[in-house]
Computed example of a mutant assay.
Amino acid sequence: MFRKIGSRQLPLHLMVLPALLLVLVFSYGPIAGLVIAFQKYSIVKGIGDSEWIGWDNFRYVFALPGTGDVIWNTVYISFMKIVAGLFAPIVTALLLNEVRVSFIKRGVQTLIYLPHFLSWIILGGIMIDILSPSYGLVNQALAFIGLEPIFFLGDNRWFPYMLVLSDVWKEFGFSTIVYLAALTNINPTLYEAAVMDGAGRWKQTLHVTLPGMLPIIVLMSTLSLGNVLNAGFEQVFNLYSPQVYESGDIIDTLVYRLGLVDGQYAVATAMGMFKSAVSVVFVSVSYYLAYRLANYRIF
């Protein structure tokens, strides 16, 4: 085997080995524990001696009063994040592409890119302070113009939209880089031809820039389908409260409460397994569409 790898490639393979071991131990190893979804699992008895009960855990979790709302919240929030997460970086990339002063362009890119590196623990604290109904900057501004304060993170009408806005704030700078890279691949002679035909900046954007970005837009749109059931556990967990369970509780937070808070490990595993199975379907469909529509390959 080492002869086939070659002496020059062997150090590179050895560098990958620790990461491969971590993936095997923490990502593939726990898959064996999914069997407890079909058991009346007991920590004392363990996996080997726990009673097998078939699909009863799945029937139980789907019979819970709030399960339907949780699934709807997950899909609804995820879909809004996907749409906003595509629209915001595209618009930002188009606007930055029009900036001709280099240091301003780079400065703006750095500022909008910075939140991507911050954890939701930090950003969650910032959001709580900014949106506080008593001392938050947003509600102080509302009070200044004579409006009543709004409890953004404690009102079911507002909470899902706060999740979407804060997610866009955190991630749109990172996604903008992808679209800026796509803009660099557009042939400059197309703009020159458009100018010769009398096209202004707006028509150049419509007829040259957007068509040039279309392949990457289609690719990012189709790949995002795999996140339909990923509404963002870290974000929701750091921002939600029992007051907004009705509109903000998602599958991941339900699994957390069932498993780690209530100790119903088998039921939590069943719900998590359901989410994983559906996600695999969406991921497979998204990669197939990306291949068919944008000639995207994963190898």
Rank of each mutant, 00 (worst) to 15 (best):
M1W: 13
F2M: 11
R3N: 08
K4F: 13
I5G: 06
I5P: 03
S7L: 13
P11T: 09
V16H: 01
V16S: 02
L17F: 13
A19S: 10
A19Q: 04
L20P: 01
L22F: 14
V23R: 01
V23G: 00
Y28E: 03
G29R: 00
G29C: 02
L34R: 07
V35F: 11
V35H: 00
I36L: 09
S42D: 14
S42N: 13
S42V: 07
V44D: 11
V44G: 12
K45E: 15
G46F: 11
I47E: 01
D49H: 14
D49I: 09
G54Y: 05
G54H: 02
W55D: 01
D56M: 10
N57D: 08
Y60G: 02
V61G: 01
A63M: 10
L64C: 01
P65V: 07
P65N: 05
G66L: 10
G68Y: 00
G68P: 01
V70G: 02
V70E: 02
V70T: 13
W72E: 06
F79D: 04
M80S: 10
M80C: 13
K81Q: 12
A84N: 11
G85P: 08
G85F: 02
L86M: 15
L86R: 10
A88E: 09
A88V: 10
V91F: 13
T92Y: 09
A93E: 09
L95S: 05
L95M: 14
N97K: 05
E98F: 07
F103M: 10
R106E: 12
R106L: 11
G107H: 04
V108L: 12
Y113I: 04
L114E: 02
L114C: 06
P115W: 10
H116E: 02
F117L: 05
F117R: 09
I130G: 00
I130L: 12
L131A: 04
S132G: 04
S134H: 09
L137C: 00
A141M: 13
G146I: 04
G146S: 03
I150N: 09
F151D: 15
G154V: 03
G154P: 02
G154K: 07
N156V: 09
R157Q: 12
F159Y: 14
Y161R: 11
L163G: 00
V164T: 04
L165F: 15
L165Q: 05
F172L: 07
G173K: 06
G173P: 04
F174C: 04
V178P: 04
L180F: 06
N187R: 01
T189R: 03
Y191S: 02
E192G: 01
A193I: 11
A193P: 05
V195F: 07
Q204S: 15
L206P: 06
S221D: 03
S221M: 07
G226K: 10
N227T: 13
V228I: 15
V228S: 03
N230K: 13
G232A: 02
V236Y: 08
Y240N: 12
E246S: 12
D249R: 13
D252Y: 03
L258G: 00
V261K: 04
V261N: 06
V261F: 10
G263I: 08
A266N: 12
V267A: 12
A268G: 10
M271L: 15
G272A: 05
M273F: 14
F274K: 07
S276D: 04
A277C: 15
V285G: 06
S286L: 12
Y287C: 07
R292F: 07
A294L: 04
N295L: 11
N295D: 15
Y296M: 12
